[in-house]
């Protein structure tokens, strides 16, 4: 019998069973295998000498407590749908809310914006013709004024240019057409909320702005806080344009809410 086979036999020997006769015969003649056998026996005895520990006296009591806790958890789990952990519902709700928020943000970002450019171009084409007809006509008197409450300026996000505030592109077709065609009379006016409180310089600059722009009214307001424009179309009808905040840009809304016109420095989009 070879040493390798003998060592394997010794290694796998059951503790309660002695080595086979062939192994014993080999051990008598092979010192290395005998040393291996002695060493392994000593090692097994050493490891086998380890005391067996026993469970503590309160093992059962503690186990009962843990089993009771496990049962409570099991009952709690059964209240939910099968295979649906309690934490999963909270996760589902949170995920749903997040999804809705994302959908709202995406919708707001991707929805088509009103085509102000197109409308502005159309309007410019019509007004150029009208403006050509009324070249020799004087512009109406335009009054401008500051705003009443500073807070409202913050809310509408108005933009200040020096000490004046420019409002361009007020496209109220009826009013604008009449303003362009009409003579420079007191009948056609644009008022702000403190009409008449400003001096002649303001009126003149507003008038020039109006003239330069043709039918597109450009009003220079001496304060950054203009909040309202009032139109008087010469026929006894007064119209009020209120600013609205749209995308951080201040706009004036027509009374019939047909259009929104930006009041920023850059003018119509």
């Amino acid at each position: 019998m070879k040493c390798k086979a003998v060592k394997r036999e010794i290694e796998e020997l059951e503790a309660s069973v002695g080595p086979p006769v062939e192994v014993e015969t080999h051990l008598r003649s092979c010192e290395a295998c005998r040393a291996f056998s002695t060493e392994r026996a000593a090692l097994k005895a050493l490891v086998g000498s380890l005391d067996k520990v026993s469970a503590p006296p309160d093992f059962d009591w503690r186990l009962r407590a843990r089993l009771s806790e496990a049962r409570s958890e099991s009952r709690r789990e059964r209240r939910w749908l099968p295979g649906f952990a309690p934490g999963a519902q909270a996760i589902t709700v949170a995920a749903s809310v997040t999804l809705i928020l994302v959908a709202v943000v995406v919708y707001r970002q991707t929805r088509p914006a009103p085509s102000y450019k197109t409308q502005s171009a159309e309007f410019a084409a019509t007004t150029i013709k009208e403006g050509a007809k009324s070249e020799d006509k004087a512009a109406p008197i335009i009054n401008s004024a500051p705003v009443a409450a500073p807070n409202s300026a913050k809310q509408v996000g108005s933009k200040e240019v020096g000490r004046t505030r420019e409002v361009k592109g007020v496209k109220a077709n009826n009013t604008r057409t009449e303003l362009a065609r009409g003579p420079a009379t007191q009948q056609q006016r644009i008022f702000t909320n403190d009409l008449g409180s400003r001096g002649a310089d303001d009126l003149a600059s507003a008038k020039n702005s109006y003239t330069d722009a043709g039918p597109v009214i450009s009003v220079r307001v001496p304060s950054a806080t203009a909040s309202q424009l009032r139109f008087e179309d010469g026929q006894g009808t007064r119209r009020t344009l209120s600013p609205v905040n749209f995308g951080g840009q201040e706009l004036f809304e027509r009374p019939d809410k047909a259009r929104l016109v930006p009041a920023s420095e850059k003018g119509v989009w």
């Binding site: 520990v53 469970a55 503590p56 093992f59 186990l63 843990r66 089993l67 496990a70 099991s74």
Partner: peptide, 14 residues
């Protein structure tokens, strides 16, 4: 070891 032994029985029970 005691803690893990108890956990063993709890798992078997569950």
């Amino acid at each position: 070891a005691v803690d893990l032994a108890q956990e063993t029985f709890v798992r078997i029970y569950r």
